[in-house]
Amino acid sequence: MAEKLITIKEIKLNNNCPECYNTNGLQLTFKQKFKETTLYKSITDETTQEIECKTCNTIIYPVMWTDDIERVFEYQRKAFTPKKSSIKLKKKAWLLIALLGILIIAGVAVVIGYK
């Protein structure tokens, strides 16, 4: 089962980076988990957030956040709407469902034929 995070929204922040003190390098990224198996693809409800400074290439963890960064993060988190969770069946799954249906119908027909 392959799981990966897909980027849903990227936001540039005007706050100072706690590492390099640059004001135009911070970027907030919202990602959502995507699962793929041989039978289906699905988008889950699980989301992650990450703040990265593109100037010094540093991930800014919550321990390093200033009050300003925390306020902006909370605002953006409330404004963010993730994609709805969904499941899409692949051809193999549909073939298995059809085969199972045919087997059930054949089994019922055999039982009715013996009576």
Rank of each mutant, 00 (worst) to 15 (best):
A2V: 09
K4H: 13
K4M: 13
T7Q: 09
I8P: 06
I8N: 10
I8W: 02
K9F: 02
E10D: 01
I11L: 07
L13F: 06
N14A: 10
N16K: 08
P18Q: 13
P18H: 12
Y21K: 14
G25P: 09
G25D: 08
G25F: 08
L26I: 13
L26E: 14
L26S: 08
Q27I: 14
Q27F: 01
Q27K: 13
K31N: 12
K31V: 12
K31C: 03
Q32Y: 08
Q32W: 12
F34V: 02
K35D: 08
E36P: 04
L39W: 01
Y40H: 07
Y40L: 06
K41D: 09
K41Y: 10
I43W: 05
T44P: 03
D45H: 13
D45N: 15
E46T: 14
T47P: 03
T48E: 15
T48W: 01
E50M: 05
I51S: 01
E52H: 08
C53Y: 09
C53F: 06
C53Q: 11
C56S: 07
N57Q: 14
T58R: 03
I59Y: 00
Y61S: 11
Y61Q: 14
V63K: 09
M64Q: 12
M64H: 14
T66H: 13
D67P: 03
V72M: 01
Q76K: 00
R77P: 05
R77Y: 01
R77F: 04
F80G: 04
F80D: 02
F80S: 02
P82R: 12
K83T: 05
S85F: 06
S85A: 07
S86R: 14
I87R: 12
I87A: 01
K88E: 15
K90A: 00
K90H: 09
A98V: 12
A98S: 05
G101M: 12
G101Q: 07
L103H: 01
A106V: 15
G107A: 02
V108G: 07
V108H: 07
V108Q: 11
V110C: 09
V111H: 00
V111F: 04
I112D: 10
G113L: 08
G113Y: 14
Y114A: 01
K115N: 13
